[in-house]
Amino acid sequence: MKKILLILFLSIGASSMAFAKNEIRTVKYLFTMKNVLDKKVTHCGEMTVYTTCGAQWSGTFCLEQETYAPFTDTEYMRIIRFKDLELCGHTDIPE
C-alpha cells in the first residue's frame, strides 16, 4: 500500500514538474457578487500566469458583467493576455 502511495506521489510530482516546464497558467473561479445599484454582476477568480517573457504573476482578478454566467473561455484567454501584455510588452506584434 505504502509503495503504491509513493509511486502515486512521485508520478503526480513528476507530472507537475513536466507541466511547469511547459509553462502552465492556472485560473480558478472564486465567487460572484451582485451589485444591485448598477445591475452588474462581479465575477472573481485567481490565477497564475506564466508569461511569454518568463515572469510569473499570481493574483486575483474581478470582472464586472451583466450576466450570472461565469467566465467564458474567451474571457479567460483575454484576462491572461492582459497580464501578459502588462508584464512583457508584446513588442513583436505589428499593431
Binding site: 507541466f19 511547459n22 509553462e23 502552465i24 497558467r25 492556472t26 485560473v27 480558478k28 506564466y50 508569461t51 511569454t52 479567460y76 491572461i80 493576455r81 501578459d84 512583457c88 508584446h90 513583436d92 506584434i93
Partner: peptide
Amino acid sequence: ISINNSSKLA
C-alpha cells in the same frame, strides 16, 4: 484550470 502554454500569446 491549468492551461498548457502552447499558445502564441504574443
